[in-house]
Design a protein around this nucleic acid. Structure first.
Length: 640
DNA sequence: CTAGGGTTAG
């Protein structure tokens, strides 16, 4: 992939002379707010308990039984310590080696260690530190030994020991254990270990905690290394904590840290995350001009953001940049571009890039084929999708769940139901059939093709096969029944959906309300609408049209006008047909005043009703040409 | 070890 596809070859680079420093003040001036962050973290690998529990010694290690000798020991006539007594081995490191060996071989050494080594003075800092140093590869053992020491009386804990234990925890990336160790001991770790702690916190997703430690370091006048700052920034970017990016960047420049291209790469990504793509692009230009080349992922994130905004021209420019800087676009780059092109109804452009890649000797992988097939299906280009499907298989790539579902969905949507059924069978045979998505794809496809009963059968099958139904399952089915005019069934599944705690999609609701009204069940429609309103569903107002329409038909004008007011007050324009029906029915029912009132609003909104709708009104008005009517008409005309 | 990708409603 040395060159770029023809589609992107028409733009040149924009030059920007500004230096990197130019952005610093803007970044400093940001208002920052730290949200609660709910990151997960890996704790001590071998120890699923929370650190607090680890420190609740007695629950894990039966230290209160220390004085009791184990049965094992009773049967063991020679104690390990006798060696020291007999041979006069007494250098601290030799003792530590022996103790460590013992600890490693006895799962419950805590109980007998003191009596096994009666001549060893564990309260001697030189001794316990030497033992701890022996266990550097095993954090859990270190921690156990440390806790055991704490259970002894007469052991004084010096900062060296705490630092040693703390560094052990931090190097093992046991963020939670390190945190509660700090909390527990209240000691001041050496700055270099605090710096390691920052890294450890970041790697465990505890960004906010890390910010706090940066503060602490700042207060003691210690400046973390560039690598640590960059690591923190990279984790902020990964977890979309843009606010923290700006805050940390501000602090690191305040500390006088000299940033590198990695730092700027994170800033570019941060700009992309807050959809400030222009700034991101500008910054990229500045780094490039300064002679630095960011990591591929920075280019890709920028390209992805540009694509999302439909700015394919700049995408082209960035691709030029990448090639010029000997940093060729990779599979992710092209996949993102193709995906976005298809999403913007430019699947033909996407396909051109796809073909171009193949012409350059590149073999697309399964994900790439899936993306392309999906994109083509969404653009109703089933011919090309099918072509790629077989080409992919020919190239030895076996479709998986994603590929099958994307293609089967496309087949259903274009009415190729035989082929859809056939491929679905194949997918089931390959073991991809029993997921929520595969069932949803089939249920939706069947509903789109007027096969609601079969869809319902699959719906039941999900229960038998223990496949979880989600809101998509229900929404698809409800819509299917609505389209078949089967309102009773649709309502049944709607109630089921609500019982499961799901919310209907707006499309489902609109359809359901419309169908209920058409069947004359306005009351149910109104209840439904209020239900969705109470549940915080947004756009509801458009679905009031059929309700107003049906109420007019039933000559329930007070209610119709009330709903109409509700719609208008919320800034939603009723449909022209709704207003026409209302005016017609009002006139027929001899309610000229109300008809005129509605007409007034209609004109105010710039909606012109069809002539026939005004006929009956004009007719009535002419028959009783009162002064009142004239006034009303006058008002209406003035409002216009 | 060196991040990151694809499927279902509307």
């Amino acid at each position: 992939m040395a060159r770029i596809p023809s589609f992107f070859s028409n733009l040149c680079l924009r030059q920007n002379p500004k230096s990197l420093r130019a952005i610093t003040p803007q970044i400093r001036n940001r208002n920052l707010s730290l949200d609660q962050f709910n990151g997960n973290s890996e704790e001590l690998a071998q120890q699923p308990q929370k650190p607090d529990e680890i420190f609740a010694q007695n629950r894990i290690f039966p230290l209160n039984e220390t004085s009791r000798l184990s049965e094992e020991l009773m049967q063991n006539p020679q104690k390990p310590d006798e060696k020291f007594a007999q041979n006069q081995i007494s250098t601290v490191s030799e003792i530590a080696k022996e103790v460590s060996k013992f600890i490693l071989s006895r799962p419950r050494w805590e109980q007998t260690l003191l009596s096994d080594f009666p001549t060893v003075n564990f309260a001697d800092p030189a001794v316990y530190k030497a033992v701890l140093k022996q266990q550097e590869s095993n954090v859990l053992l270190s921690l156990r030994f440390y806790l055991w020491l704490r259970s002894l009386s007469g052991v004084s804990f010096d900062p060296d020991l705490c630092n040693l234990m703390f560094s052990r925890l931090v190097e093992a990336k046991a963020a939670y254990a390190a945190k509660s160790f700090l909390h527990d001991t209240k000691f001041e770790p050496e700055p270099r270990y605090l710096e390691l702690y920052v890294r450890c916190l970041c790697e465990n997703g505890l960004i906010d905690e890390a910010v706090g430690v940066f503060e602490r370091l700042k207060m003691i006048g210690y400046c973390a290394s560039l690598e640590t700052w960059n690591l923190a920034l990279s984790h902020c970017v990964r977890t979309s904590r843009v606010d923290v990016v700006w805050r940390l960047y501000g602090e690191m420049t305040e500390c006088g840290v000299v940033t590198d291209v990695g730092t700027i790469g994170h800033l570019i990504q941060a700009f992309c995350l807050e959809n400030n793509v222009a700034k991101g692009y500008e910054l990229l230009q500045q780094v490039l001009e300064a002679g630095h080349v960011p990591d591929n992922i920075v280019f890709n994130k920028l390209i992805s953001a540009l694509c999302k905004n439909g700015n394919f021209g700049t995408v082209s420019a960035v691709l030029h940049n990448m090639i010029a800087k000997n940093c060729p676009p990779d599979i992710y780059t092209y996949q993102e571009i193709i995906y976005r092109l298809c999403k913007g109804r430019m699947s033909n452009e996407g396909l051109r890039i796809f073909d171009e890649l193949k012409n350059r000797g590149y073999f697309p992988d399964r994900v790439m084929y899936t993306t392309m097939i999906h994109g083509l299906c969404r653009n109703k280009d089933l011919g090309n999708a099918r072509k790629l499907w077989f080409e992919m298989i020919q190239n030895g790539i076996i479709p998986n769940e994603y590929t099958y579902n994307a293609f089967i969905d496309g087949l259903w949507r274009s009415g190729h139901f035989d082929e859809a059924e056939k491929l679905h069978k194949e997918m089931v045979d390959r073991g991809y059939g029993e997921t929520t998505v595969s069932y949803n794809t089939m249920i939706n496809g069947l509903c789109l093709n007027e096969k609601v009963e079969e869809a319902q059968a699959l719906f039941e099958e999900m229960n038998e096969k223990d496949v979880v139904r989600d809101s998509i399952t229900y929404n698809s089915l409800i819509k299917g029944f609505c389209c078949q005019g089967k309102i009773t069934e649709a309502l049944h599944f709607f109630i089921e959906l609500r019982k499961q705690g799901f919310l209907p999609s707006t499309a489902t609701l609109t359809t359901l309300i419309k169908k209920l009204c058409e069947a004359g069940q306005v009351k149910e429609a109104e209840t439904l609408w209020l239900d969705m309103q109470n549940n915080g569903l947004e756009p509801a107002f458009h679905s009031l049209d059929p309700i107003i329409s049906e109420l007019s038909k039933q000559e329930r004008f007070a209610e119709a006008l009330e709903w109409l007011g509700c719609m208008i007050n919320n800034g939603v324009r009723p449909k022209k047909t709704t207003l026409e029906r209302l005016v017609e029915r009002l006139s027929l029912a001899d309610r000229s005043d109300d008809a005129l009132f509605v007409l007034g609003y209609t004109l105010k909104m710039g909606i012109v009703l069809k002539q026939s709708s005004c006929h009956s009104l004009v007719d009535k008005l002419c028959r009783n040409n009162s002064h009142h009517t004239n006034t009303l008409l006058g008002e209406i005309l003035e409002r216009r």
